[in-house]
């Protein structure tokens, strides 16, 4: 009788104890990827999608034009000069557009930077396709070096008619002193 009772107690205990690592793992293997997926689908935080490969050259919607505004911000401790070479671009949905961002490392040491994109309104994020972006890679600049970084994008023809202006913002982070960022998470972002 007593032994049987103890067995039952142990059974409950192990079942409950099993929940603990499961919930712990849940955070890492479910919540984080799920959140990233949600971001990608809904444009949460204005996060943009990764590299876009254009299907067979689509037609261009000449009937409307979208104003695309570029904004560059330096995060704290980032001393690079960083700005869009063109601040405003009027584009047709479906057309491929080119622009560049200028960056210069004014310091006396080589530095590495990561640009993080964000789109406003966030409902436009899913319709903004980057075929090439400097934000896909880290940027290494030696002391005093300057570079024009390319950005090529297509605004989707399915962009809701209510959206007439898209603001694309890049925040530049200094990632030099810390160990290289986890490549997988960078990939997840892009």
């Amino acid at each position: 009788m007593r032994a049987e009772g103890e067995k039952k107690v142990l059974g409950t205990t192990w079942k409950m104890a099993l929940v603990v690592p499961l919930m712990f793992a849940f955070v890492f293997v479910v919540m984080v990827p799920l959140y990233n997926l949600l971001c990608e689908v809904t444009g949460l935080n204005g996060k943009t999608q990764g590299q876009y490969t254009a299907e067979a050259a689509g037609s261009v919607d000449e009937s409307r034009s979208i104003m695309v505004r570029f904004v560059a911000t330096n995060n704290e401790g980032m001393s690079w000069e960083f700005h869009p070479t063109t601040e405003l671009l009027r584009v047709h949905p479906g057309a491929e557009n080119d622009t560049t961002f200028f960056a210069r490392n004014p310091t006396a040491a080589a530095m590495t930077a990561q640009a993080v994109p964000s789109i406003v309104p966030s409902s436009a994020a899913a319709y903004f396709h980057k075929t090439e972006c400097f934000c896909f890679n880290q940027q290494h600049l030696s002391a005093g070096e300057a570079v024009d970084m390319p950005l090529r994008f297509i605004v989707d023809k399915d962009l809701p008619a209510s959206i007439r202006t898209i603001t694309l913002s890049y925040t530049l982070f200094d990632i030099t002193p810390t160990p290289t960022a986890d490549k997988a998470t960078v990939a997840a972002l892009n």
Partner: peptide, 8 residues
């Protein structure tokens, strides 16, 4: 106001 992201 969130570092790296733009809200409106």
């Amino acid at each position: 106001a969130i570092p790296g992201f733009v809200n409106e």
